[in-house]
Nucleic acid binder design. Structure first.
Lengths: 223, 223
DNA sequence: TAGTGGTCTAGACCACTAT
DNA sequence: TAGTGGTCTAGACCACTAG
């Protein structure tokens, strides 16, 4: 019956009334507490809204804050073709900064994966990803995947939390060369610390061509 | 009794057991459904976690995604003193871009408020805010407030949703002059469309000194 | 086997809204 | 005044976990 109410609700205009609790009691021949519990779940989901004394109504769809997206997902959203070229993929010893960000000890083994990423065939960014080797046994040996986030997901390590920092800068000579822009061109630097459960699964630094990339973020007060 | 359980939970280590439902039934002399409803509220709040067959436990605190913060709040978070200097505050007719962003018609009256904002006495950014005059009657006449978001909040218009875009650029001559940096210095451009309920309450464009400002964003998969 | 949360019953009274 | 959601009672059976 949860599903019955859901089907009534899906496609209904926000604000339109849902069946009253007592009506569903009669229609399904169940107790009112049963109906309430079913509807409660839909209220928590944000599909229904109760107004005491008036009734239960289809809620205005919740706006959803930005999700954690991969480069491929992000470019797909922009209608662009994402391609990546691995510049470097090897085992390294964590330096102080990477160790701290990955919650490791300096010198611990990490995977360093550097890629030049294109959109519609034109350079878009250079990404340096650092991964905790302990969480990804055999990662380097098994051939690099197309999508890091898909690879993490298949191991149950899809990040559910990310701490990003973003600033503007000028690209250095190497960066500008790879990105195919004039030396000193403006770039957007994006650092990410991505967490799955309690584990830091990815630390990355990405440098975007400022002329090709604008970051979009949606923030909600509710969630 | 909701408050009793909340008080037990607040300060308890995540993972520690909460009283069982039947124990609370005996302790308070109420029906079990009553206990469940009280605990349900705490589960929805994220304070408790149920594990069928095992019990109810104090949940690991939810990570909360970035909230919508004002400049003053943001600088306070960084431990810096925020100051603002109004460069311009007047009624204008909305141009095509601002009209679209504010969900108005071109030529409608908007308030344009330009401020140079300092942190610890040094220029940090220039913000151009555009406000729907219809939502803020007498705003210009009543003297500009210290904080736009406080002023919006006092009118019940605290934004609960924001659509931001961020990119890197070089500052133009005027911007660099006001920001007291070399002409052509890198800047971070931040645009915001802030919404309260159904109404667009603020559209702004801010240009930050890249050498002083890094944007921090936290993203969650849950909310 | 004892204890837990998940679900359900068949009522009840309350405060509130709309007519 | 009729209808709504909010809260509550005093039970019940189930599936699951743990010792």
């Amino acid at each position: 019956m949860r599903e019955y109410v859901r089907s009534l609700v899906t496609g209904s205009a926000p604000g339109s009334p849902a069946p009253s609790e007592r009506e569903l009691v009669h229609r399904f021949g169940v107790a009112r507490m049963t109906v309430r519990q079913a509807m409660d779940a839909l209220v928590v989901e944000g599909l229904l809204e109760r107004i005491p004394g008036r009734g239960t109504f289809v809620a205005r769809p919740r706006r959803t804050a930005s999700r954690i997206t991969s480069y491929s997902e992000e470019m797909a959203r922009r209608g662009m073709l994402a391609e990546s070229q691995t510049l470097l993929a090897r085992r390294e010893q964590a330096g102080p900064g990477v160790a701290r960000a990955l919650s490791l000890t300096e010198g611990d083994a990490v995977i360093h994966w550097r890629r030049l990423r294109r959109a519609d065939g034109v350079p878009m960014c250079i990404e340096d990803a650092y991964l905790n080797e302990v969480l990804l046994p055999g990662f380097l040996q098994s051939g690099m995947p197309t999508s890091l986030y898909d690879a993490l997901e298949s191991r149950g390590l899809r990040p559910s939390w990310a701490e990003d920092s973003i600033n503007a800068d000028r690209g250095n000579a190497e960066e500008c060369g790879l990105l195919e822009v004039e030396p000193g061109s403006p770039v957007l630097r994006h650092s990410r610390r991505a967490i799955a459960g309690d584990k830091v699964v990815e630390v990355s630094r990405t440098v975007y061509r400022a002329d090709r990339f604008t970051l979009w973020v949606q923030l909600g007060q509710d969630g």
